[in-house]
């Protein structure tokens, strides 16, 4: 699912979001020498191929009162992790759910999810609910509450030689 250099440039121009004006795609396209129709066609193509997973308002949890958030990590036997991941992802409070590699001896966990709540107690209750719902109550886990936020943004600018390759990414552990 590779993207073309032109598509990458379009996603880069979109890194900080649409200009908030009546014809935002015309303004976006203008930065790249595209017409409004060309910018819209390119974005529709990216969406249809699944590169753009969603297009809309991206909210920031903390500012909306979700003051507690935790990354919850689980040490699931390899043969069971995909089924467990799908079950955990279906729990109502889980917003993101991934498998990542263990790094022994430092890091034994292979299943990650994010849970946001209005307070620590709410998050911990949601973790318990999710664990039972996914059949993970007996699996070793840790709850890593977030503390200071050093950076949160949707865009990363690549080296200037690429003309500012940038995109937004939903892998964030935020």
């Amino acid at each position: 699912m590779d993207v073309t250099p032109g598509e990458r440039a379009l996603l880069a121009a979109l890194a900080d979001g649409l200009p908030l004006e009546p014809h935002p795609f015309a303004a976006l396209g203008e930065r790249l020498g595209l017409t409004e129709a060309q910018a819209l066609d390119a974005l529709r193509a990216l969406r249809d191929r699944g590169v753009v997973r969603r297009f809309g308002v991206v909210v920031r949890h903390h500012e909306l009162g979700y003051r507690a958030n935790a990354m919850v990590v689980w040490d699931v036997p390899d043969a069971a992790v995909d089924a467990a991941g799908r079950a955990l992802a279906a729990a109502p409070d889980v917003t993101l759910c991934y498998r990542r590699p263990r790094r022994l001896p430092d890091w034994p966990y292979n299943l990650f999810c994010m849970i946001h709540g209005r307070g620590r107690d709410a998050v911990l209750r949601a973790v318990e609910r999710a664990a039972y719902a996914a059949g993970l109550a007996a699996v070793p886990r840790e709850v890593l509450f977030s503390g200071k936020r050093f950076k949160q943004r949707g865009a990363v600018f690549g080296p200037a030689r690429t003309g500012g390759a940038a995109w937004t990414n939903s892998t964030a552990a935020s």
Partner: peptide, 19 residues
């Protein structure tokens, strides 16, 4: 309250990322 109005891109399509 709003980070942006825009696209969320599937990981590891338009670039590569890690945690």
């Amino acid at each position: 309250a709003v980070s942006r109005v825009g696209a969320v891109v599937r990981p590891n399509t338009a670039g590569r990322s890690t945690l």
